[in-house]
């Protein structure tokens, strides 16, 4: 699909979500911008605590408040800024226009209701179906996510299903009202590898079927390589690199992204004596309360320069939609 011909369905523009606590202000999301395009998968990558999930929650309007609050920016969904909507208008979009699935299928389904009940809730709420219609629609959805004997499964409770089944049920629920955007927050992290592949396959198929824009949050670059059309790499609340998937893997620019790629274990390396240890990015992600003055990666960067420690680089377009936030690549500085 040609990216330029399709209008983005969701544009996040300079989003800032901060958490206010006694320790100070944690800038969990600090000026993040990217677009989601129909039928495309946008991968958001980064370590835990880099602001991936908070970005997603900001889109849904589900940032726990207090202590969190979106302080600046725009989230445009069909030219409407979601941040300006009141709670009633937002609720109509949640589930129907933008749906979300979570990491842990074990805990993201309510243990005391059957999955049929939880899926039909979507149809009753957003489509006004009655009980019978909604349950039939739920059976239909379970069938679409390839759950065997959906007529029987629809009356079962989450604990009666396996992890993979639960995630399928969760996807069925999220996709039930044909949302334009699906936000998947680490949807396969908690699953077995073989099940992971099945779930990713399923998401891929549904995406084409419904031409949904998927925002896939993960820390697994393997999943990204498999699924994503474009990738947004986040570090400490900011986008550090953004490009088409192939471009990113072939012409990695940011030292952080390179570090991430290098820390993927390669099968057979150790047994052939090629690598003594796994490569890692040295040091810890900085506390959001106490960020470095310049580039946020400067305290861990292997190629750090003096300038990096005092001045924060801008996210700079390098051509072909490849953008990077690094002094190594930002020529003609504003200094």
């Amino acid at each position: 699909m040609d990216k330029n011909t399709l209008k983005p369905v969701l544009s996040i523009d300079n989003l800032k979500t901060h958490f206010f606590s006694r320790k100070g202000v944690a800038r969990a999301v600090d000026g993040v911008s990217f677009d989601l395009t129909p039928g495309e998968v946008t991968g958001i990558v980064g370590e835990s605590g880099c602001g991936k999930s908070v970005t997603a929650l900001s889109v849904m309007g589900l940032v726990p408040n207090p202590p969190g609050r979106v302080v600046d920016g725009k989230i445009l969904f069909h030219q409407k800024n979601l941040l300006d909507l009141n709670i009633k208008e937002l609720r109509k979009i949640r589930g129907a226009g933008i749906a979300m699935i979570f990491q842990e299928p074990m805990t993201s389904l309510n243990p005391v209701y059957t999955i049929g009940n939880q899926i039909s809730e979507m149809f009753r709420l957003h489509k006004g179906y009655n009980k019978k219609q909604a349950l039939d629609a739920a059976v239909d959805m379970l069938d679409r996510v390839q759950i065997p004997s959906p007529h029987k499964r629809v009356h079962e409770f989450p604990h009666q299903l396996s992890g993979g089944m639960r995630q399928r049920a969760m996807i069925a629920m999220a996709m039930s009202c044909d949302p334009e955007i699906l936000i998947a927050d680490e949807p396969t992290t908690a699953l077995d590898v073989t099940v992971q592949a099945q779930i990713l396959d399923l998401m891929h198929r549904l995406k084409d079927e419904f031409s949904t824009a998927i925002q896939l949050i993960t820390h697994d670059l393997g999943v990204i390589a498999e699924m994503a059309d474009q990738v947004v790499v986040m570090y400490a609340g900011q986008v550090v690199e953004q490009a088409g998937t192939r471009e990113l893997f072939q012409h990695t620019l940011h030292p952080y992204t390179r570090g991430l790629l290098a820390s993927i274990p390669v099968l057979g390396h150790r047994t052939r004596g090629m690598d003594e240890d796994l490569t890692e990015i040295k040091g810890m992600i900085p506390s959001l309360y106490d960020l470095p003055a310049g580039c946020r990666f400067s305290n861990r960067c292997p190629q750090v320069m003096d300038k990096c420690k005092t001045h924060l680089p801008e996210l700079t377009e390098m051509g072909g939609g490849h953008r990077v936030r690094c002094w190594l690549h930002t020529k003609g500085t504003t200094l």
Binding site: R94, M100, L109, M122, L125
Partner: peptide, 24 residues
Amino acid sequence: EYIKTAWSKGLSPFTVIVKHALRN
């Protein structure tokens, strides 16, 4: 987590609190 799910479905605060939370 399932309360987050319930909110993300667009349910009313009453439904989320009484149906999904209180029952548990």
